[in-house]
């Protein structure tokens, strides 16, 4: 809104200084924990014990990163977090693809092929976004056990698809709702079928919302802890669970530098996505918060 104020309304110099001062202080508040995590991951254990948390590493070493990736002990196995990182990738990729595709066709049907009760169906899918997952945790554990999927990545994929449909449907529904229905009508008169209209008319215009959905689902699923901890402990655990096990294990010397390096590995995929396409992530978060 300030962009619309006339030039005379600009605040005086003193006020400007206060504003920038506050912005800088807050920037420090938001950057500091991450900064400390980053520098610690390049320090030796000795330097951590003796030095200042905020100081840059005197003798930067990538040994903690190598240890975190390949040799540190998580639980009983000492092969680093690489296997768990791979678990997370194997879980995230199919779960994101499947939930995004389902969300796209759901949004298409719910906006362009409405049927009696479409609101109720959408409302029920939407509410599913907001339930506390604790209320489905026990039955899910029982069902995954029965299906033989307990403790597997496939089981986690199923879980994330099921509880990701609500959001992906919400995103595509709101996007397609603004897509001109006249185009669908024109295509019908032109003789295009249900799937042809989707593939030829809607999908080519869906780039932005696909990016939003993929990034949102990727971030959400990668960062999940509750489902991972409940259904995939041990070797099938995703990255977040492994990180927590590593950090909170009470045996031996605490290798803080390795912990921080492992945390960086857990943070990097979503951080990279944020740096590359942060605006889309924000759009997704907003769409989940303030619909339409």
């Amino acid at each position: 809104m300030a962009a619309d104020l006339p030039a005379g309304a600009r605040s005086p110099i003193a006020a400007r200084i206060v504003i920038y001062g506050l912005l800088l202080i807050f920037a420090v508040f938001y950057l500091l924990p991450f900064f400390v995590m980053l520098v610690t991951s390049f320090k030796t254990l000795d330097e951590i014990q003796d030095g200042n948390m905020l100081a840059l590493p005197k003798n930067p070493t990538i040994a903690p990163w190598l240890a975190a990736w390949g040799t540190t002990c998580v639980g009983l196995t000492c092969q680093g977090i690489k296997g768990f990182f791979a678990n997370s990738i194997l879980m995230v990729v199919p779960a994101v693809i499947i939930s995004t595709m389902l969300g796209a066709v759901n949004g298409y049907v719910l906006t362009k092929w409405r049927f009696p009760g479409h609101r109720l169906v959408f409302g029920m899918m939407l509410f599913a976004c907001f339930i506390p997952f604790q209320s489905v945790l026990i039955p899910m554990a029982l069902v995954l056990g029965t299906l033989g999927l307990a403790g597997t990545t496939a089981g986690l994929v199923l879980v994330h698809v099921v509880y990701g449909i609500g959001f992906s449907t919400l995103f595509f529904r709101n996007y397609y709702d603004a897509f001109p229905t006249e185009l669908v009508r024109a295509a019908q008169i032109d003789g295009a079928s249900f799937f042809q209209i989707f593939r030829r008319i809607l999908l080519p215009s869906s780039g932005p919302i696909i990016v939003v959905t993929v990034i949102f689902q990727f971030t959400n699923i990668w960062n999940d802890f509750l489902f991972g901890a409940s259904f995939a402990s041990g070797d099938a655990a995703p990255m977040t669970v492994a990180l927590n096990n590593l950090v909170s294990s009470s045996t031996g010397v605490k290798e803080y530098n390795v912990h921080m390096a492992a945390a960086m590995f857990a943070a990097l995929p979503t951080l990279i996505v944020y740096v590359v396409a942060g605006q889309y992530l924000v759009r997704g978060l907003m769409a989940g918060a303030v619909k339409g």
Partner: peptide, 27 residues
């Protein structure tokens, strides 16, 4: 983006970072 980036992190990473930052002995 500086104010917003923590939203991209897992709560586990956030917890780990703050646990270290607020560690009475070392932080």
């Amino acid at each position: 983006p500086i104010y917003l980036y923590p939203m991209a992190l897992s709560f586990i990473v956030t917890g780990t970072a703050w646990k270290w930052f607020l560690n009475p002995g070392l932080g």
